[in-house]
Computed example of a mutant assay.
Amino acid sequence: MTLQLLGLLVVFGITGIVMLVHFTGGSQAASLSQDEDIRDAWHADWPHNKPLKTMVNTGGTAALIHLPNDALGLIWSFGADTVSRTLTAGSLRSVKARGNTLIVQFNAFDCPTARIPLTRRELPEWHAQLAPYLPQEVSHG
């Protein structure tokens, strides 16, 4: 078998596999549109932190999780799976709006940034919910 023929078989084989996965739903993003979906995804990562209330974005791709003791969690879809974080004081580096996207930067090496699509009405509400987890400025005087 010639190298050119082998190269064509590899290229078409990989393309066929990618198309098969995509058209059978394997590349579909995780949905967080239902309260049950949010709770199941949260429970997979944090089985001992029971959600009290959830607040999902309009697109169904992210949610804020209200936890006992006034704690807050954030979960968002990342491809076909989800990423979730419990938030503590200072765990966020910044929360900025860019267009209709809220960009949340974490103070964690393993999870540097989350991009959450929100409506114009959701942006200030989500920012207000996340603001207490930003670093507090210390005055030296």
Results as ranks from 00 to 15, higher is better:
V138M: 05
H43N: 15
R98W: 08
Q28F: 04
L74W: 12
A80T: 14
T113G: 07
T101Y: 12
I103W: 05
F23S: 01
D40S: 04
L67F: 06
W42D: 06
T119Y: 00
Q136L: 12
V83S: 11
S91Q: 07
A108H: 13
L32P: 00
A63F: 00
Q105Y: 02
H66N: 11
H127P: 04
I14T: 15
T15N: 13
T86E: 14
K53Q: 03
R93A: 15
T58I: 01
Q34N: 14
N107R: 14
L74S: 12
S33I: 07
R98L: 14
F23D: 01
L72V: 13
V138W: 03
T58D: 01
T61Q: 01
N69M: 11
E36M: 09
L3M: 03
L9V: 03
A114H: 04
I14Q: 14
P51D: 03
L130S: 13
P135G: 04
L102W: 01
W42A: 09
I17N: 09
T15P: 03
M19S: 14
L20G: 02
N69E: 15
I75P: 03
G99I: 11
G73M: 07
L123V: 11
G73R: 04
L8N: 04
Q129A: 15
L74Y: 11
L67G: 07
L102N: 01
R98H: 14
T2R: 02
D70Y: 09
G99M: 13
I65K: 12
G79Q: 10
S27Q: 12
L102T: 01
Q34F: 06
I103E: 13
W126F: 00
P132A: 09
I65N: 10
S77T: 06
L67A: 08
L74G: 13
L74Q: 12
S33V: 08
I103S: 12
K53N: 02
G59A: 14
L9Q: 04
I103L: 10
V21G: 05
D70F: 12
Y133V: 14
D70L: 12
T2P: 05
Q34I: 08
G26P: 00
K50D: 10
E125D: 07
L134S: 01
G26F: 01
P132T: 11
T88F: 05
S94F: 01
S33Y: 07
G60S: 00
V21N: 05
A30V: 02
V56C: 00
K50F: 06
R120T: 10
I17H: 10
P68V: 07
A80Q: 12
V11N: 10
L74V: 15
G59K: 08
A41S: 13
S139V: 05
R120G: 14
S33Q: 10
L6R: 08
V11W: 10
R120K: 15
E125P: 02
D70R: 15
T58E: 02
A108G: 09
A80W: 07
A41C: 06
L5K: 10
H22I: 02
L130F: 09
V138K: 07
A30R: 04
P132E: 07
L102Q: 00
V83W: 05
W42M: 07
M19H: 10
I17M: 13
Q4D: 11
H43P: 03
I14K: 12
V56M: 00
D81F: 12
H22R: 06
R39P: 02
Q34D: 15
L74P: 07
S84T: 06
R98G: 08
L20A: 03
M1S: 02
V10N: 08
A108V: 07
N49K: 09
I116M: 02
